[in-house]
Nucleic acid binder design. Structure first.
Lengths: 351, 351
DNA sequence: TTTGTTTTTATTAACGATGTAAACATGGAT
DNA sequence: ATCCATGTTTACATCGTTAATAAAAACAAA
């Protein structure tokens, strides 16, 4: 392997000088700088990250913990974050927690000793406080921190549940005049599950609130189930047996919505003619089905960018902000994708 | 941060003894071992990976380069590999090459200086020889090495194109008696694209060969297009306009097949009644559509396991095998998922 | 007790980059 | 010529771990 010493020798300077050049300190004569740069390029020099990290505590490697990469929501977020970091010559370690709360905490704990500069996390049900208790002053940015306000400890980048759900409900009620809207994915009672509780609770409530603002006040708008594909299939069958008492099903995420559409298809119920279906997230699969899924496309790229910016800030003035200021929650943008599961239009139009 | 020195002091031994214990060398008295272990646990000691890596050249961190994580094939493979490694207390850095050949080579080159112990790669069109030229003796395992035989340089874990395609064609021709089978996804002429050429070429040829073995010898079985969703949509429209001269479309991967199904739906052609459609890969989306997609489910977990085993071997006897033996190609298992896109059966049966 | 042998622990020098303090030039001003 | 100020460069200690070697302790046999 080619080390800084090799570069230094090749360009006739000391290791310290070479190091200064590589770090971009402008305390070196332009002439020397050029010599060193050339030698480095010629030798294909790349700084040894272990050594740098050991000495300076800075590795330019970050860690992302997600519950699962098979879930397209996390896969797309990971993809964007990796790209964003790579563009800044940073690397990303991706760890999969498999929705295991304790495993996740253990992963966070071992981070202190790893060479990673900071943690991005889509937590599986650990609150900011839980994570803080093992991460200490380690730099952390959360995605969709679902902690209750009192348990938030870190800056977080959030999906626009309120604005998104409002737009979606308006789309259904105002643009398409749906009269019997069901909100699919309200809370399954599980008191131990207090984090997930918060996000679900919020998103459902926003949907309900938007419904009321549209002058809608029927009871039984809430349909209780988990936020996954199989739950969607089951709910669809269940509702079909009841004679489908809704003309629109506003699902709390895409995975669930695709399950619902699948289930409806199995029961011979036509979307959107008999019932409209909507999702939330904007994962790719939603454009693969027939009909394609109307959904809220979350700005994944924006989430990744915002998160890296927050991380940068956190690392730069480490001591200053950490203790004093409240954790921030930054909500990213979204786009309402009007597709076939709500619009009876020509299929080619809205792909 | 808590260091080995802290552990040593807490347990009243020297740093080297503590190190020996942590590394599991059994040259330490059981009594001493116990003391050190307890202290380490009590202090939540985790070895500093930078230091270990710097000194010993072993970090237990590996790198995976994939073209893209939005592509479910790569996402699921990444997921499995991450899990497999994590179970062995190893970590995985995932880099996304964005299908950029040169970027990928640059990523490989900078690996020498990184703290990573080895590379797993789903290459974007770089041959084994290309990678070898920048990676040197760095340990590399390839997924689906598409190099021509003369350019293979590394052990590779491969998707079972031949067995899978044979099973699929038999499923179509023998089980379902389809008479006009189209092989969708044969080569788009692109001489610069010599790697991708090989895999595509092979998979198509295996399909064709299987067709012939089923006593099938019509001309015009090959339908030329790229292996992605949009190509599938386009091809479907094109074939529909020609009056759909096939009763089965054997697509070279799932992404393409899902596009074809989508396109057929847009044209009002019913699958599988008018034409059967099959995929290859076994990505999750294939069970989200209606009809669900008949496909070859590649054993992702097996791929990940095999790859880590090969990596382990490569690292253990680094000098011995590297030069002497030929690169191995290990082909993993698969499962033919008979689903609705070929079987007219009750939809509930084959989810 | 002495000697030899084995087991266990301690000392010390790396690994490669960084950052501080010190050394070395260079050029004016005294 | 001497001194100081400024601008560049270098020597060296350091980060936490490992591994080779040296030292010490334990034990057995003479």
């Amino acid at each position: 392997m080619v080390t800084l010493k090799d570069v230094a020798e090749a360009s006739g300077v000391s290791v310290s000088t070479a190091s200064a050049v590589m770090r971009g300190l402008d305390i070196v004569k332009p002439d020397t700088t050029r010599k060193v740069r050339n030698a480095a390029k010629k030798l294909h020099y790349h700084a040894n990250i272990s050594a740098r990290s050991l000495r300076s505590g800075r590795s330019n490697i970050f860690t992302l913990i997600v519950p699962d990469l098979e879930n397209q929501y996390y896969a797309e977020l990971s993809n964007c974050l990796s790209n964003e970091l790579l563009a800044q010559h940073k690397q990303l370690i991706i760890q999969v927690s498999q929705y295991d709360k304790d495993k996740e905490i253990e992963q966070v704990r071992s981070l202190n000793a790893s060479m990673s500069d900071g943690l991005f996390i889509c937590s599986t049900n650990n609150s900011g406080a839980d994570i803080k208790s093992v991460a200490g002053d380690y730099p952390v940015i959360m995605f969709d921190d679902m902690s209750a306000a009192t348990e938030a400890r870190y800056d977080s980048v959030e999906t626009p549940s309120q604005a998104g759900m409002t737009a979606m409900i308006r789309h259904l009620c105002l643009e398409h005049d749906r009269k019997r809207v069901g909100i699919v994915g309200t809370l399954v009672e599980d008191p131990s599950n207090r984090i997930s509780y918060t996000l679900r609770h919020n998103r459902c409530n926003f949907a309900h609130q938007a419904l009321m603002e549209c002058g809608y006040d029927r009871p039984n708008t809430f349909i209780t189930c988990d936020w996954d594909h199989n739950s969607g299939i089951a709910i669809a069958h269940h509702l079909a047996e009841e004679g489908m008492p809704y003309d629109a099903l506003c699902c709390m995420n895409d995975d669930l919505a695709l399950g619902v559409m699948r289930g409806l298809a199995e029961c011979g119920i036509v979307v959107p003619d008999q019932v409209a279906v909507t999702g939330y997230d904007g994962i790719t699969s939603g454009s693969y089905t027939s009909p394609t899924l109307t959904t809220i496309a979350v700005d994944f790229k924006g989430m990744a960018q915002t998160a890296t910016e927050l991380m940068q800030q956190k690392i730069l003035h480490k001591d200053a902000s950490t203790r004093t200021s409240m954790p921030r929650r930054i909500i990213v943008g979204f786009q309402l994708l009007r597709r076939e599961s709500t619009c009876r239009s020509r299929p080619e139009a809205n792909r």
